[in-house]
Design a protein around this nucleic acid. Structure first.
Lengths: 219, 219
DNA sequence: GCTATAACCGTACGTCTATATTGCTATCGG
DNA sequence: CCGATAGCAATATAGACGTACGGTTATAGC
Protein backbone atom coordinates (compact mmCIF):
# COMPACT_ATOMS: atom_id res chain seq x y z
CA UNK A 1 0.00 0.00 0.00
CA UNK A 2 1.14 3.54 -0.67
CA UNK A 3 1.74 6.36 1.72
CA UNK A 4 -1.20 7.40 3.86
CA UNK A 5 -2.55 10.76 4.95
CA UNK A 6 -5.11 11.81 7.54
CA UNK A 7 -8.04 12.24 5.25
CA UNK A 8 -10.23 13.87 7.87
CA UNK A 9 -7.55 16.33 8.93
CA UNK A 10 -6.78 17.32 5.35
CA UNK A 11 -10.42 17.98 4.60
CA UNK A 12 -10.56 19.99 7.79
CA UNK A 13 -7.64 22.13 6.66
CA UNK A 14 -9.43 22.84 3.42
CA UNK A 15 -12.82 23.66 4.90
CA UNK A 16 -11.13 25.87 7.48
CA UNK A 17 -9.44 27.74 4.68
CA UNK A 18 -12.80 28.18 2.97
CA UNK A 19 -14.25 29.59 6.16
CA UNK A 20 -11.46 32.11 6.52
CA UNK A 21 -11.89 33.23 2.92
CA UNK A 22 -15.64 33.61 3.34
CA UNK A 23 -15.13 35.71 6.44
CA UNK A 24 -12.54 37.91 4.81
CA UNK A 25 -13.86 38.34 1.29
CA UNK A 26 -17.20 36.59 0.96
CA UNK A 27 -18.35 33.40 -0.68
CA UNK A 28 -17.94 34.75 -4.21
CA UNK A 29 -14.23 35.22 -3.57
CA UNK A 30 -13.80 31.55 -2.73
CA UNK A 31 -12.04 29.83 -5.61
CA UNK A 32 -10.27 26.50 -5.43
CA UNK A 33 -6.98 28.21 -6.26
CA UNK A 34 -7.37 30.73 -3.46
CA UNK A 35 -8.53 28.04 -1.09
CA UNK A 36 -5.48 25.95 -1.90
CA UNK A 37 -3.21 28.92 -1.29
CA UNK A 38 -4.96 29.75 1.98
CA UNK A 39 -4.66 26.14 3.11
CA UNK A 40 -1.03 26.04 2.05
CA UNK A 41 -1.38 23.31 -0.54
CA UNK A 42 -1.71 22.86 -4.28
CA UNK A 43 -4.91 23.03 -6.27
CA UNK A 44 -4.36 19.43 -7.26
CA UNK A 45 -4.48 18.36 -3.65
CA UNK A 46 -7.71 20.16 -3.02
CA UNK A 47 -9.12 18.30 -6.00
CA UNK A 48 -7.79 15.09 -4.52
CA UNK A 49 -9.95 15.57 -1.44
CA UNK A 50 -12.97 17.18 -3.05
CA UNK A 51 -13.98 16.00 -6.48
CA UNK A 52 -15.76 19.28 -7.17
CA UNK A 53 -16.03 22.74 -5.69
CA UNK A 54 -19.65 22.12 -4.73
CA UNK A 55 -18.57 19.22 -2.54
CA UNK A 56 -16.02 21.42 -0.86
CA UNK A 57 -18.57 24.08 -0.06
CA UNK A 58 -21.13 21.57 1.11
CA UNK A 59 -18.56 19.99 3.41
CA UNK A 60 -17.64 23.40 4.76
CA UNK A 61 -21.23 24.31 5.52
CA UNK A 62 -21.87 20.91 7.07
CA UNK A 63 -18.88 21.27 9.36
CA UNK A 64 -19.80 24.79 10.40
CA UNK A 65 -23.34 23.75 11.20
CA UNK A 66 -22.25 20.67 13.08
CA UNK A 67 -19.90 22.65 15.25
CA UNK A 68 -22.50 25.32 15.74
CA UNK A 69 -25.36 23.14 16.87
CA UNK A 70 -22.99 21.03 18.93
CA UNK A 71 -22.01 24.13 20.84
CA UNK A 72 -25.61 25.13 21.40
CA UNK A 73 -26.41 21.59 22.52
CA UNK A 74 -23.52 21.58 24.92
CA UNK A 75 -24.56 24.86 26.48
CA UNK A 76 -28.13 23.67 26.93
CA UNK A 77 -26.90 20.39 28.39
CA UNK A 78 -24.66 22.21 30.82
CA UNK A 79 -27.50 24.50 31.80
CA UNK A 80 -29.72 21.52 32.49
CA UNK A 81 -26.98 19.70 34.38
CA UNK A 82 -26.41 22.71 36.59
CA UNK A 83 -30.11 22.99 37.26
CA UNK A 84 -30.50 26.45 35.82
CA UNK A 85 -33.86 27.94 34.97
CA UNK A 86 -35.04 28.01 31.39
CA UNK A 87 -34.30 31.69 31.05
CA UNK A 88 -30.75 31.41 32.36
CA UNK A 89 -30.01 28.37 30.26
CA UNK A 90 -31.37 29.78 27.01
CA UNK A 91 -29.59 33.04 27.55
CA UNK A 92 -26.28 31.21 27.53
CA UNK A 93 -27.19 29.06 24.57
CA UNK A 94 -28.73 31.72 22.34
CA UNK A 95 -25.93 34.17 22.87
CA UNK A 96 -24.02 31.75 20.66
CA UNK A 97 -26.15 32.88 17.75
CA UNK A 98 -25.00 36.45 17.99
CA UNK A 99 -22.00 38.08 16.39
CA UNK A 100 -20.76 39.59 19.63
CA UNK A 101 -17.07 38.73 19.38
CA UNK A 102 -14.68 38.00 16.54
CA UNK A 103 -15.15 34.25 16.58
CA UNK A 104 -18.92 34.42 16.58
CA UNK A 105 -18.93 37.26 14.08
CA UNK A 106 -16.87 35.10 11.76
CA UNK A 107 -19.21 32.19 12.18
CA UNK A 108 -22.20 34.43 11.65
CA UNK A 109 -20.78 35.68 8.37
CA UNK A 110 -20.25 32.14 7.16
CA UNK A 111 -23.76 31.12 8.11
CA UNK A 112 -25.17 34.21 6.43
CA UNK A 113 -23.30 33.58 3.21
CA UNK A 114 -24.43 29.98 3.04
CA UNK A 115 -27.99 30.87 4.01
CA UNK A 116 -28.13 32.94 0.88
CA UNK A 117 -26.49 30.24 -1.19
CA UNK A 118 -28.88 27.64 0.19
CA UNK A 119 -31.79 29.51 -1.35
CA UNK A 120 -30.82 28.05 -4.72
CA UNK A 121 -29.06 24.84 -3.74
CA UNK A 122 -31.13 21.94 -2.49
CA UNK A 123 -28.32 20.17 -0.68
CA UNK A 124 -27.21 23.26 1.21
CA UNK A 125 -30.83 23.98 2.04
CA UNK A 126 -31.24 20.50 3.48
CA UNK A 127 -28.24 20.96 5.76
CA UNK A 128 -29.55 24.34 6.81
CA UNK A 129 -33.01 23.01 7.58
CA UNK A 130 -31.63 20.07 9.51
CA UNK A 131 -29.53 22.35 11.68
CA UNK A 132 -32.38 24.72 12.35
CA UNK A 133 -34.93 22.11 13.31
CA UNK A 134 -32.26 20.41 15.42
CA UNK A 135 -31.59 23.54 17.43
CA UNK A 136 -35.24 24.39 17.72
CA UNK A 137 -36.18 20.93 18.92
CA UNK A 138 -33.33 20.92 21.42
CA UNK A 139 -34.53 24.25 22.77
CA UNK A 140 -38.09 22.95 22.87
CA UNK A 141 -36.96 19.92 24.83
CA UNK A 142 -35.08 22.18 27.23
CA UNK A 143 -38.24 24.21 27.75
CA UNK A 144 -40.22 21.07 28.43
CA UNK A 145 -37.60 19.79 30.87
CA UNK A 146 -36.93 23.15 32.42
CA UNK A 147 -38.19 24.86 35.49
CA UNK A 148 -39.60 28.29 36.11
CA UNK A 149 -39.65 29.51 39.69
CA UNK A 150 -39.00 25.98 40.82
CA UNK A 151 -41.80 24.45 38.80
CA UNK A 152 -41.83 22.54 35.54
CA UNK A 153 -43.60 24.39 32.77
CA UNK A 154 -46.70 22.67 31.51
CA UNK A 155 -49.49 23.27 29.09
CA UNK A 156 -47.34 25.38 26.81
CA UNK A 157 -46.56 24.53 23.25
CA UNK A 158 -42.83 24.18 23.74
CA UNK A 159 -42.09 23.85 20.02
CA UNK A 160 -43.85 27.11 19.39
CA UNK A 161 -42.07 28.85 22.24
CA UNK A 162 -38.77 27.55 20.87
CA UNK A 163 -39.51 28.93 17.43
CA UNK A 164 -40.31 32.31 18.86
CA UNK A 165 -37.33 32.64 21.09
CA UNK A 166 -34.85 31.33 18.52
CA UNK A 167 -36.34 33.57 15.85
CA UNK A 168 -36.04 36.51 18.18
CA UNK A 169 -32.41 35.72 18.88
CA UNK A 170 -31.64 35.39 15.19
CA UNK A 171 -33.38 38.62 14.39
CA UNK A 172 -31.33 40.39 17.01
CA UNK A 173 -28.22 38.77 15.59
CA UNK A 174 -29.04 40.10 12.14
CA UNK A 175 -29.55 43.60 13.45
CA UNK A 176 -26.31 43.49 15.36
CA UNK A 177 -24.60 42.55 12.16
CA UNK A 178 -26.27 45.15 9.98
CA UNK A 179 -25.96 48.07 12.31
CA UNK A 180 -23.73 47.47 15.33
CA UNK A 181 -23.74 51.17 16.18
CA UNK A 182 -27.43 51.47 16.90
CA UNK A 183 -27.62 47.90 18.15
CA UNK A 184 -24.85 47.58 20.74
CA UNK A 185 -23.96 44.39 22.51
CA UNK A 186 -25.49 45.56 25.74
CA UNK A 187 -28.84 46.44 24.20
CA UNK A 188 -29.04 43.13 22.38
CA UNK A 189 -28.25 41.05 25.42
CA UNK A 190 -30.63 43.13 27.49
CA UNK A 191 -33.36 42.54 24.94
CA UNK A 192 -32.74 38.82 24.98
CA UNK A 193 -32.68 38.71 28.76
CA UNK A 194 -35.82 40.76 29.05
CA UNK A 195 -37.67 38.64 26.55
CA UNK A 196 -36.62 35.40 28.21
CA UNK A 197 -37.55 36.75 31.60
CA UNK A 198 -40.88 37.94 30.31
CA UNK A 199 -41.76 34.57 28.87
CA UNK A 200 -40.21 32.16 31.31
CA UNK A 201 -40.50 33.76 34.72
CA UNK A 202 -43.91 35.26 34.25
CA UNK A 203 -45.67 32.91 36.64
CA UNK A 204 -43.87 34.29 39.64
CA UNK A 205 -42.55 37.67 38.58
CA UNK A 206 -45.35 39.47 36.75
CA UNK A 207 -44.20 41.13 33.57
CA UNK A 208 -44.75 44.86 33.31
CA UNK A 209 -45.43 45.03 29.60
CA UNK A 210 -45.35 48.79 29.30
CA UNK A 211 -41.87 49.28 30.70
CA UNK A 212 -38.60 48.38 29.11
CA UNK A 213 -35.80 46.84 31.13
CA UNK A 214 -33.25 47.72 28.48
CA UNK A 215 -29.84 48.93 29.54
CA UNK A 216 -30.08 51.81 27.14
CA UNK A 217 -27.73 52.43 24.24
CA UNK A 218 -24.35 52.35 25.88
CA UNK A 219 -21.39 52.51 23.44
CA UNK B 1 -30.35 67.08 -30.14
CA UNK B 2 -30.55 63.35 -30.74
CA UNK B 3 -33.29 60.93 -29.92
CA UNK B 4 -34.31 60.72 -26.29
CA UNK B 5 -35.23 57.84 -24.03
CA UNK B 6 -36.83 57.63 -20.63
CA UNK B 7 -33.70 57.17 -18.59
CA UNK B 8 -35.51 56.35 -15.41
CA UNK B 9 -37.77 53.79 -17.06
CA UNK B 10 -34.87 52.09 -18.80
CA UNK B 11 -32.96 51.77 -15.58
CA UNK B 12 -36.09 50.40 -14.00
CA UNK B 13 -36.36 47.74 -16.68
CA UNK B 14 -32.81 46.69 -15.99
CA UNK B 15 -33.07 46.59 -12.21
CA UNK B 16 -36.34 44.70 -12.50
CA UNK B 17 -34.58 42.14 -14.66
CA UNK B 18 -31.84 41.85 -12.06
CA UNK B 19 -34.45 41.23 -9.39
CA UNK B 20 -36.10 38.48 -11.38
CA UNK B 21 -32.77 36.80 -11.99
CA UNK B 22 -31.84 36.99 -8.32
CA UNK B 23 -35.15 35.44 -7.35
CA UNK B 24 -34.87 32.66 -9.90
CA UNK B 25 -31.20 31.78 -9.78
CA UNK B 26 -29.48 33.84 -7.13
CA UNK B 27 -27.14 36.79 -7.20
CA UNK B 28 -24.20 34.76 -8.51
CA UNK B 29 -26.20 33.97 -11.64
CA UNK B 30 -26.64 37.65 -12.43
CA UNK B 31 -24.39 38.56 -15.34
CA UNK B 32 -24.77 41.60 -17.52
CA UNK B 33 -25.42 39.37 -20.51
CA UNK B 34 -28.18 37.48 -18.75
CA UNK B 35 -29.61 40.70 -17.38
CA UNK B 36 -29.70 42.18 -20.86
CA UNK B 37 -31.46 39.10 -22.20
CA UNK B 38 -33.96 39.14 -19.33
CA UNK B 39 -34.65 42.82 -19.89
CA UNK B 40 -34.98 42.24 -23.63
CA UNK B 41 -32.10 44.47 -24.68
CA UNK B 42 -28.47 44.26 -25.67
CA UNK B 43 -25.47 44.18 -23.37
CA UNK B 44 -24.33 47.42 -24.89
CA UNK B 45 -27.49 49.14 -23.79
CA UNK B 46 -27.12 47.90 -20.24
CA UNK B 47 -23.64 49.37 -20.27
CA UNK B 48 -25.08 52.59 -21.58
CA UNK B 49 -27.23 52.95 -18.47
CA UNK B 50 -24.83 51.48 -15.93
CA UNK B 51 -21.15 52.10 -16.39
CA UNK B 52 -20.29 49.04 -14.36
CA UNK B 53 -21.99 45.97 -12.99
CA UNK B 54 -21.50 47.22 -9.44
CA UNK B 55 -23.55 50.31 -10.22
CA UNK B 56 -26.30 48.14 -11.62
CA UNK B 57 -26.45 46.02 -8.50
CA UNK B 58 -26.30 49.01 -6.20
CA UNK B 59 -29.15 50.65 -8.10
CA UNK B 60 -31.16 47.45 -7.85
CA UNK B 61 -30.67 47.15 -4.12
CA UNK B 62 -31.46 50.82 -3.61
CA UNK B 63 -34.69 50.52 -5.54
CA UNK B 64 -35.76 47.39 -3.69
CA UNK B 65 -35.10 49.00 -0.35
CA UNK B 66 -36.84 52.20 -1.28
CA UNK B 67 -39.95 50.36 -2.37
CA UNK B 68 -39.78 48.17 0.70
CA UNK B 69 -39.54 50.86 3.32
CA UNK B 70 -42.04 53.02 1.45
CA UNK B 71 -44.54 50.20 1.74
CA UNK B 72 -43.88 49.77 5.44
CA UNK B 73 -44.18 53.52 5.94
CA UNK B 74 -47.43 53.61 4.07
CA UNK B 75 -48.92 50.82 6.12
CA UNK B 76 -47.90 52.49 9.35
CA UNK B 77 -49.28 55.80 8.14
CA UNK B 78 -52.56 54.19 7.21
CA UNK B 79 -52.73 52.48 10.57
CA UNK B 80 -52.21 55.79 12.32
CA UNK B 81 -54.71 57.58 10.11
CA UNK B 82 -57.32 54.96 10.86
CA UNK B 83 -56.64 55.26 14.55
CA UNK B 84 -55.61 51.67 15.03
CA UNK B 85 -53.82 50.48 18.13
CA UNK B 86 -50.08 49.90 18.03
CA UNK B 87 -50.50 46.17 17.89
CA UNK B 88 -52.94 46.24 14.99
CA UNK B 89 -50.90 48.73 13.07
CA UNK B 90 -47.59 46.96 13.49
CA UNK B 91 -49.12 43.65 12.62
CA UNK B 92 -50.07 45.01 9.22
CA UNK B 93 -46.74 46.68 8.67
CA UNK B 94 -44.45 43.89 9.82
CA UNK B 95 -46.26 41.24 7.85
CA UNK B 96 -44.60 42.97 4.91
CA UNK B 97 -41.27 41.62 6.09
CA UNK B 98 -42.36 38.03 5.78
CA UNK B 99 -42.17 35.77 2.74
CA UNK B 100 -45.81 34.73 2.97
CA UNK B 101 -46.80 35.07 -0.67
CA UNK B 102 -44.95 34.97 -3.97
CA UNK B 103 -44.34 38.69 -4.20
CA UNK B 104 -43.00 39.00 -0.67
CA UNK B 105 -41.05 35.78 -1.00
CA UNK B 106 -39.36 37.21 -4.07
CA UNK B 107 -38.56 40.42 -2.29
CA UNK B 108 -37.27 38.51 0.68
CA UNK B 109 -34.90 36.52 -1.50
CA UNK B 110 -33.53 39.69 -3.04
CA UNK B 111 -33.01 41.30 0.33
CA UNK B 112 -31.34 38.16 1.64
CA UNK B 113 -28.96 37.95 -1.30
CA UNK B 114 -27.94 41.58 -0.96
CA UNK B 115 -27.66 41.34 2.82
CA UNK B 116 -24.97 38.76 2.27
CA UNK B 117 -23.31 40.81 -0.44
CA UNK B 118 -23.40 43.90 1.77
CA UNK B 119 -21.16 42.17 4.28
CA UNK B 120 -18.22 42.85 1.97
CA UNK B 121 -19.35 45.93 0.10
CA UNK B 122 -19.40 49.25 1.91
CA UNK B 123 -21.87 50.95 -0.42
CA UNK B 124 -24.40 48.16 -0.24
CA UNK B 125 -23.95 48.06 3.52
CA UNK B 126 -24.71 51.76 3.77
CA UNK B 127 -27.96 51.34 1.85
CA UNK B 128 -28.87 48.40 4.02
CA UNK B 129 -28.17 50.27 7.24
CA UNK B 130 -30.09 53.30 6.10
CA UNK B 131 -33.14 51.21 5.29
CA UNK B 132 -33.03 49.39 8.56
CA UNK B 133 -32.67 52.41 10.78
CA UNK B 134 -35.37 54.10 8.73
CA UNK B 135 -37.85 51.34 9.35
CA UNK B 136 -36.92 51.03 12.97
CA UNK B 137 -37.27 54.73 13.62
CA UNK B 138 -40.61 54.83 11.83
CA UNK B 139 -41.82 51.96 13.99
CA UNK B 140 -40.48 53.69 17.08
CA UNK B 141 -42.33 56.87 16.15
CA UNK B 142 -45.49 54.87 15.62
CA UNK B 143 -45.10 53.37 19.07
CA UNK B 144 -44.61 56.79 20.59
CA UNK B 145 -47.66 58.16 18.76
CA UNK B 146 -49.76 55.08 19.26
CA UNK B 147 -52.37 54.14 21.75
CA UNK B 148 -52.85 51.06 23.90
CA UNK B 149 -56.30 50.53 25.38
CA UNK B 150 -57.17 54.09 24.50
CA UNK B 151 -54.10 55.61 26.13
CA UNK B 152 -50.82 56.84 24.70
CA UNK B 153 -47.88 54.77 25.75
CA UNK B 154 -45.38 56.61 27.88
CA UNK B 155 -42.22 55.91 29.73
CA UNK B 156 -41.15 53.20 27.38
CA UNK B 157 -38.01 53.27 25.32
CA UNK B 158 -39.74 53.23 21.97
CA UNK B 159 -36.52 52.79 19.98
CA UNK B 160 -35.71 49.71 21.99
CA UNK B 161 -39.21 48.32 21.60
CA UNK B 162 -38.95 48.93 17.87
CA UNK B 163 -35.68 47.06 17.65
CA UNK B 164 -37.14 44.12 19.46
CA UNK B 165 -40.32 43.84 17.51
CA UNK B 166 -38.67 44.34 14.13
CA UNK B 167 -35.95 41.85 15.00
CA UNK B 168 -38.58 39.37 16.04
CA UNK B 169 -40.42 39.81 12.77
CA UNK B 170 -37.26 39.38 10.78
CA UNK B 171 -36.28 36.29 12.70
CA UNK B 172 -39.67 34.79 11.99
CA UNK B 173 -39.27 35.73 8.35
CA UNK B 174 -35.96 33.92 8.20
CA UNK B 175 -37.42 30.79 9.74
CA UNK B 176 -40.34 30.85 7.37
CA UNK B 177 -37.87 30.98 4.54
CA UNK B 178 -35.58 28.26 5.81
CA UNK B 179 -38.22 25.78 6.84
CA UNK B 180 -41.73 26.64 5.69
CA UNK B 181 -42.99 23.17 6.64
CA UNK B 182 -42.35 23.48 10.35
CA UNK B 183 -42.99 27.23 10.29
CA UNK B 184 -46.34 27.65 8.54
CA UNK B 185 -47.89 30.99 7.73
CA UNK B 186 -50.50 30.63 10.45
CA UNK B 187 -47.97 29.89 13.18
CA UNK B 188 -45.79 32.81 12.17
CA UNK B 189 -48.62 35.30 12.09
CA UNK B 190 -49.95 33.92 15.35
CA UNK B 191 -46.54 34.36 16.92
CA UNK B 192 -46.32 37.94 15.71
CA UNK B 193 -49.84 38.73 16.89
CA UNK B 194 -49.24 37.14 20.24
CA UNK B 195 -46.00 39.00 20.74
CA UNK B 196 -47.50 42.33 19.75
CA UNK B 197 -50.49 41.75 21.99
CA UNK B 198 -48.25 40.75 24.84
CA UNK B 199 -46.18 43.90 24.60
CA UNK B 200 -48.67 46.51 23.54
CA UNK B 201 -51.92 45.61 25.24
CA UNK B 202 -50.44 44.49 28.52
CA UNK B 203 -51.75 47.41 30.52
CA UNK B 204 -55.35 46.39 30.10
CA UNK B 205 -55.24 42.74 29.16
CA UNK B 206 -52.73 41.03 31.45
CA UNK B 207 -50.38 38.72 29.62
CA UNK B 208 -50.37 35.08 30.68
CA UNK B 209 -46.71 34.37 30.06
CA UNK B 210 -46.90 30.62 30.52
CA UNK B 211 -49.54 29.96 27.88
CA UNK B 212 -49.18 30.09 24.15
CA UNK B 213 -51.88 31.60 21.99
CA UNK B 214 -50.51 29.96 18.88
CA UNK B 215 -52.97 28.74 16.29
CA UNK B 216 -51.19 25.42 16.08
CA UNK B 217 -49.41 24.07 13.05
CA UNK B 218 -52.08 24.11 10.40
CA UNK B 219 -50.86 23.30 6.87
C1' DG C 1 -32.92 68.20 -45.03
C1' DC C 2 -28.75 68.32 -42.83
C1' DT C 3 -26.04 67.21 -38.81
C1' DA C 4 -24.76 66.51 -34.27
C1' DT C 5 -25.50 63.40 -30.82
C1' DA C 6 -27.82 60.16 -27.85
C1' DA C 7 -29.64 55.52 -28.18
C1' DC C 8 -28.45 51.18 -29.28
C1' DC C 9 -26.07 46.77 -31.14
C1' DG C 10 -22.53 43.17 -31.81
C1' DT C 11 -18.26 41.54 -30.94
C1' DA C 12 -13.59 41.15 -29.57
C1' DC C 13 -10.28 41.00 -25.75
C1' DG C 14 -8.16 39.89 -21.55
C1' DT C 15 -8.92 37.77 -17.22
C1' DC C 16 -10.47 34.42 -14.15
C1' DT C 17 -12.34 29.99 -13.10
C1' DA C 18 -13.24 24.92 -12.52
C1' DT C 19 -11.54 20.92 -13.75
C1' DA C 20 -9.00 17.34 -16.58
C1' DT C 21 -4.62 15.46 -17.20
C1' DT C 22 -0.05 14.13 -16.74
C1' DG C 23 3.67 13.00 -14.11
C1' DC C 24 6.61 12.71 -9.95
C1' DT C 25 7.33 11.00 -5.12
C1' DA C 26 7.08 8.60 -0.99
C1' DT C 27 5.77 4.57 1.53
C1' DC C 28 3.37 0.25 2.82
C1' DG C 29 2.87 -4.81 2.00
C1' DG C 30 5.18 -8.54 0.37
C1' DC D 1 14.07 -4.24 -1.77
C1' DC D 2 10.66 -3.45 -4.94
C1' DG D 3 6.64 -2.22 -7.15
C1' DA D 4 1.95 -0.90 -6.70
C1' DT D 5 -0.58 2.87 -5.29
C1' DA D 6 -2.13 6.96 -2.79
C1' DG D 7 -0.45 11.54 -1.99
C1' DC D 8 0.74 15.50 -4.20
C1' DA D 9 2.26 19.17 -7.78
C1' DA D 10 2.17 21.62 -12.13
C1' DT D 11 0.14 22.67 -16.19
C1' DA D 12 -3.30 22.51 -19.90
C1' DT D 13 -7.92 23.47 -21.43
C1' DA D 14 -12.28 25.12 -22.22
C1' DG D 15 -15.58 28.23 -21.00
C1' DA D 16 -17.69 32.29 -18.77
C1' DC D 17 -17.25 36.80 -17.46
C1' DG D 18 -16.88 42.16 -17.38
C1' DT D 19 -15.94 45.62 -20.16
C1' DA D 20 -13.86 48.27 -24.04
C1' DC D 21 -14.82 49.56 -28.61
C1' DG D 22 -16.38 50.41 -33.34
C1' DG D 23 -20.27 50.78 -35.80
C1' DT D 24 -25.38 51.81 -36.91
C1' DT D 25 -29.78 54.14 -36.29
C1' DA D 26 -32.98 57.55 -35.22
C1' DT D 27 -34.35 62.12 -33.92
C1' DA D 28 -34.26 66.99 -32.05
C1' DG D 29 -32.76 71.45 -33.37
C1' DC D 30 -31.43 74.43 -36.94
Amino acid sequence: MPRVADHHARRGQITDAVQRLVVRHGLTAVTVARTAAEAGMSVGLVQHYFTAKDEMLLATFTRVNRRFSARVDELVNRGEAEGRTIAEMLRQALAELMPLDDARRAEFLVRLAFTDQAAHNARLAAVQRETHVGIRSRVAQAIRNGTVCGEVVQGTDAADQALRIVAFAEGLALHTHIDPDTTPKSAVLAALDDQLGRVFTGTCRRAQPGSSAAGGTVP
